[in-house]
Design a protein around this nucleic acid. Structure first.
Length: 596
RNA sequence: GGUCACGUAGCUCAGCUGGAUAGAGCAACUGCCUUCUAAGCAGUAGGUCGUGGGUUCGACUCCCGCCGCGACUACCA
């Protein structure tokens, strides 16, 4: 419709003012709620051409296009704004067409569909997941779903950071202080069990650094490099990379504990990957890449033996790619992983869902791969999202200052259980189904809370304030849908059938037009969300739609509408709304209960 | 020091490529359940959009300076 209007305006301008214009300069937008109309044309940009007052120009154009577009019922002019009202006929046709299309809004895949690899989650196997990881997982999963429904072949991959100095830290701490205890001894989830040793390592490390400074007056940076425990960890990493059997076995055992823990958390989150990569299996490729590049004179070697690349020509610094002791750093494995993935999937683009604290890392990664001659590296994209912060600042795993993911999920389920009991609406539900419903509600509250925020922005989470279940929340959206489901159930019970051949002999009210207009927007919303990688756009859209629906629901009855044609119209309308709600929630990774 | 983000109501956030009187939710206060589910609806109160300039018919939105907060600038990840 926008395009039809734009073309008509183009014609109008030609006819009225004898000027050719590009439709790109035209502004057609949805009319704001306070004004009467469906679409609004902003005439200010046309004033230079018409050389007339805004009102006059708007009237002339309005009259002209109302004549050539039969769907226009009438128009009004306020200031420089030309508001177009469409006829009932337009809307009822739109409604019926939409009702017929089960996949309204989604783009079908075809031979030209792009293959997109999306990496998210990427946990370290030395500590449990926290709220920051939740944002990562929710964003990654939602973006994957959004890209999938907008016509792309999406491959969700995880990269488990299961090797490196940080892993050795928790291994070393366990070796020193655990007395061979294992998670089941204390009935602790494996990832939490290992995480405790990571924290313990850091505590001891700090102690030793302070001690060194006090004893020898050492500079803090020097002390950090010389604390006995860090030297021991470095030694352990060398042993690991040299396949020392004892180290390797300990590593294997502890990783298993952590991964078993993660599996439970992923299950709770409802997140599944198409493929999981392990750093321990990809870092060697990275190492080989670096060594080859060195032989081809693309890299330099420092006197102590570390291999680095000089990126001065890119206004960047030198970047170490292999340590002096020959072990790999973080970027080494990422180089290898990228190459392996390109060989695996031959992707058109690759998205890394990783926090904005790693902007520099990915900038460097991309440049290095391009320098190595991989042309496809230009299609690597860092989807850089904002951090989740606590009121007192950044979360720090090492210091135990985190909102633990498992704890938070448990808390949400508890709250949902309590609220559900208070409201007493699920008392007749079978227990197992009730538990599932409660979990759906709890996870909706959590996921929506995180996804409704613009991904690019940092967000603050205050653990003192619990996550809401009222207002602009996941449960609010779910609730509106259960209202619709309930009406549709009642209609069935009363044997009210509704058909798709509408007979419009009544006047559609304003609320209904608003709803139709919101439904009309849905495909654009999906496209924009896909373009910007922003689930928040969908969350905010669905909230607006649901608010509009609730007002409609409050003001008008559907089943008690006496005119059967009108009742028919409303039933179709709300069924489409329910479809859109469910599809939107699905894209956010949220399930929709049928009763709550 | 350098690079990059961000700064909208007490709190958490919307505000599309510049467009009509800056919007929600939470918290506070007031109404509405013999009527399709009140996890709802309606209303009151709350703002010099960090600040000073510039571009424009028009700036929360674009450009520059300043202030504030943060991230990065590791042979950590």
């Amino acid at each position: 419709m926008e395009q039809i209007l734009k073309n008509a305006i183009q014609q109008a301008v030609k006819h009225l003012y004898n000027k050719e214009i590009d439709t790109n300069i035209l502004q057609v937008q949805r009319t704001k709620k306070e004004f009467q109309g469906d679409f609004t044309i902003v005439v200010f940009p046309l004033l230079k051409i018409s050389a007339k007052k805004p009102q006059e120009t708007a009237h002339e154009i309005g009259t002209f296009i109302a004549n050539i577009i039969p769907e226009i019922k009438n128009f009004n002019v306020i200031g420089g704004f030309l508001n177009i009202c469409l006829s009932q006929n337009f809307w009822s046709n739109f409604l019926q067409k939409t009702y017929r299309n089960e996949n309204y809004g989604t783009t079908e895949k075809n031979l030209n569909s792009k293959t997109i690899v999306i990496e998210f989650s990427s946990p370290n196997t030395n500590k449990p997941l926290h709220l920051g990881h939740l944002r990562n997982n929710f964003l990654g999963d939602a973006i994957a779903k959004i890209l999938d429904c907008t016509g792309n072949n999406v491959i969700k991959v995880n990269l488990v950071n299961d090797r490196g100095i940080h892993i050795c830290k928790s291994m070393l701490a366990w070796k020193k202080w655990a007395n061979n205890k294992i998670p089941t001894d204390n009935n602790i989830k494996g990832d939490h069990f290992v995480g405790n040793y990571y924290v313990a390592f850091d505590k001891e490390y700090k102690k030793q650094v302070d001690h060194l400074i006090a004893q020898t007056n050492m500079d803090i940076e020097v002390a950090k490099k010389n604390a006995p425990i860090i030297l021991e960890a470095q030694e352990m990493l060398q042993k690991w990379e040299n396949n020392d059997p004892e180290t390797y076995n300990l590593w294997k055992t502890m990783n298993k504990w952590v991964l078993e823990g993660f599996e439970k958390t992923y299950y709770q989150l409802g997140i599944i990957f198409d493929k999981t990569y392990y750093e321990s299996e990809t870092y060697m490729t990275g190492k080989e890449l670096v060594i080859n590049a060195l032989q081809n004179n693309m890299l330099e070697k420092s006197p102590d033996g570390a291999i680095f690349i000089d990126l001065k020509d890119q206004q960047l610094d030198q970047k170490i790619l292999l340590r002096a002791d020959g072990t790999s750093v973080y970027i080494t494995q990422d180089l290898g992983t990228a190459v392996i993935r390109y060989n695996d999937f031959n992707f058109d683009s690759h998205i890394y869902v990783v926090g904005n604290e790693q902007d520099y890392h990915f900038q460097v990664l991309k440049i290095i791969l391009q320098k190595f001659g991989y042309n496809w590296a230009k299609n690597l994209q860092h989807f850089s999202y904002g951090m989740v912060e606590l009121p007192e600042g950044k979360m720090k795993s090492r210091e135990g200052k985190v909102v633990d993911a498992d704890d938070l999920i448990d808390e949400m389920i508890q709250t949902a259980t309590q609220k559900t009991a208070e409201l007493g609406k699920l008392e007749n539900m079978e227990d197992q189904k009730k538990q599932l419903t409660i979990k759906m509600i709890a996870m909706a509250a959590l996921k929506y809370f995180i996804l409704k925020v613009d991904p690019k922005k940092n967000m603050i989470f205050n653990p003192e304030e619990s996550i809401d279940f009222n207002g602009n929340t996941g449960p609010f959206i779910q609730y509106a849908n259960t209202r619709i489901k309930s009406i549709l159930r009642n209609a069935k019970e009363k044997n009210i059938e509704y058909k798709n051949n509408l007979n419009i002999d009544f006047d559609i009210n304003n609320k209904e037009i608003n709803l139709l207009s919101a439904i009309y927007e849905f495909p654009n919303i999906l496209e924009e969300a896909a373009k910007k990688y922003s689930p928040a756009i969908i969350a905010n859209y669905i909230y607006e739609l649901v608010k509009e629906f609730n007002q409609f629901y409050h003001e008008y009855s559907i089943l008690n509408e006496e005119n059967p044609d009108y009742r028919n119209f409303r039933l179709i309308l709300i069924e489409i709304i329910s479809r859109i709600i469910e599809k939107s929630l699905f894209l956010l990774g949220i399930q929709a209960p049928d009763k709550m």
